[in-house]
Design a protein around this nucleic acid. Sequence first.
DNA 1: ACTGATCCCTGCCAGC
DNA 2: TGCTGGCAGGGATCAG
Length: 280
Amino acid sequence: MPELPEVETIVKGLRENILGKKVQKAEIRYGNIFRDCSGKIFSEDNLKKAIKNIEGQRIIAVRRRGKYIIFELDDFSLIVHLRMTGKFSSEPAILKDKHTHVIFFFGEDDFLAYNDVRKFGTIQVIACEEEFEKTTASRLGPEPLGDEFTLEYLLQELKQTKKNIKAFLLTQEKIAGIGNIYADEILFYAGVNPLRPGNTISAEEGEKLYHGIKEKLLLGIEAGGASIRNYVNEKGEKGKFQDLIQVYGRKGCCCPKCGAEFITKTVAGRTSTFCPQCQK
DNA sequence: ACTGATCCCTGCCAGC
DNA sequence: TGCTGGCAGGGATCAG
């Protein structure tokens, strides 16, 4: 599942690969991947128009915002969310894959394919600033690795919420880019129980969380992301963060700090793995 | 303000 | 072996 570090890795690769290229043709095999600014599936006519708009456009920038990938074209933007299983690939074999839903051709043998086993991912077509304002991507909280995300901000937000800390970390409007894997790792690092309400987190714990967020995400980026299940970057390469994971998906394993067995509980609708001893 | 359920979708795995 | 049912999972959305 691509979270911030995985998406960052993908974006770096895309920049090397497709910047400056012109979309000659877009082949659509499953049109429901495409969405308008509010996330709604296009009608057949509107999809045709949207595709026509994309064709002939040059890719002038590729950026990441939270877990979103933003392609800036000459006159449009594409906002992509990979959700669980979405990926980009330029490998020739992907053309024959049954889960390849969209192919942007830059030339006869030069292309970028969007492949998504579960079809949860979306590609929003944005025509102008007003449309961007309607997207969820425009309502994201600060980038956790950017200057806006300060310790003061985190402590202030925690003080104001009764939401449990796990749910808080996953709230993209508060902090952009953290998903289930990194949330579990961050909470373990900080020694905080996922069920703790935000407003019960002490300043000291808040500081640990703050450093945990920075540290785990940076580590994830350095490792080229985590390859759990089927994540690979656009070159088909796996990341290395899965080898550095301490708690996520390790139910029944022993905590490296205290030796207790990790347990799981559904928190914020997600399976959360944590140490019942260390995480208070 | 927050929680919980539902939906989207398919691979995978346990159980029969 | 082959089928089936349930689960996983990010995030939007809606009901409570």
